[in-house]
Nucleic acid binder design. Sequence first.
DNA 1: GTCTATAATCCGATAGAC
DNA 2: GTCTATCGGATTATAGAC
Lengths: 216, 216
Amino acid sequence: MSKAASSGVKRRKLADIRKDNLGQILAVAEQLFGENGYSGTTIAAIAAKANLPKANVLYYFKTKEALYKGVLSRLLVLWMSHMDQMTADQHPNVALRQYILQKIKMSKEHPNASRIFAAEILHGAPYLKQQLATDLKQQFDKTCQVFREWIAKQWMEPINPEHLLFMIWSSTQAYADHALQCSMMLEKPSLDESDYEAGVEFLTRMVLKGCGIKLL
Amino acid sequence: MSKAASSGVKRRKLADIRKDNLGQILAVAEQLFGENGYSGTTIAAIAAKANLPKANVLYYFKTKEALYKGVLSRLLVLWMSHMDQMTADQHPNVALRQYILQKIKMSKEHPNASRIFAAEILHGAPYLKQQLATDLKQQFDKTCQVFREWIAKQWMEPINPEHLLFMIWSSTQAYADHALQCSMMLEKPSLDESDYEAGVEFLTRMVLKGCGIKLL
DNA sequence: GTCTATAATCCGATAGAC
DNA sequence: GTCTATCGGATTATAGAC
């Protein structure tokens, strides 16, 4: 008689256990890597927070590096989302406003994902370099092209498309990466809903007016 | 006879050796901490790059933490410089333009200082928290007050002063912290003089037009 | 598949000769 | 003040019982 058959009806399927553990490990790892960086995070700390023995973590991910890559692989997709929703037929007033809103929402809802991404870039993107050069570069060029078409249609003034994206990326990400600095300057324990809203409103205004796009 | 007296005229003064070694260690440490972070940098690596034995580094700085603090202590002053040059009697057109220029110049000339600062903020500013809450907070409030006076004089439109500073900080620092990402998107081995100039021009335009300040 | 015990390595820090 | 040798602790990874 197999081990599985002897465990009774209440036993969860092995596949479910695996799925749950994998998800739990990845979620905890994302938090700790985001808070303390790669070298600053130990497998023991991840295991403890996930309520698993250390060896179990290393059963699912053979090495610490593999676990980090597992966390990273979901990141770029998340980070790039919403960018492809800006298209040449949309008016920049709507499209840029929506993109800024979504990016700040990302900073609010996935601050650790943003921080891991930022730390990776900061330290030379050893693991993301390839994906940046292919996936992100392709989307970047596509989006710059959309900006150029908006300019050709005279929906916006002739600004530098590349630097516009750099500016939107950095200033929206700041609401995750520099959240501590911002909250300290605002004398708050942490950023709250009204701060993110003020950020959206402010950045939308800067970008739209800066690009000479009429406010609705 | 003392050791010093027996060494002849060519011997450099002990005080000079100390000064040189201290400076060399701090410079190398700033580079490596900036590139690899605190946990990602070993004392052995710093010693090797400074052409000194490991124990010698630990002679000058009793612990790794003390060395890191030594590097940090110079940073905030550097990071905060130029902010106090914006005053209420200056026209924002000149003052903001100059501040953006200086901040991007900082990103170009001291990228590792900027990266250490960014990583420190990213991971909760364990060592800088106190200085941020006192020194930076004071300068932040002062600068926001300058913005409010400009608004009162109707030199600029009523924008949110706090978020304006957040935006200038993050978008100018990006030319150091996200330099790799930017250069990859521009298909260059690294950012060059023209990129920093384009950044200054672009950000100045966004901020001045965004705040409704007349371009000169 | 799970987990305890431990091997192997790396790194910060120190002792002590020069 | 300088530097070799090494200690002690932490951390990744594995071996092997269950």
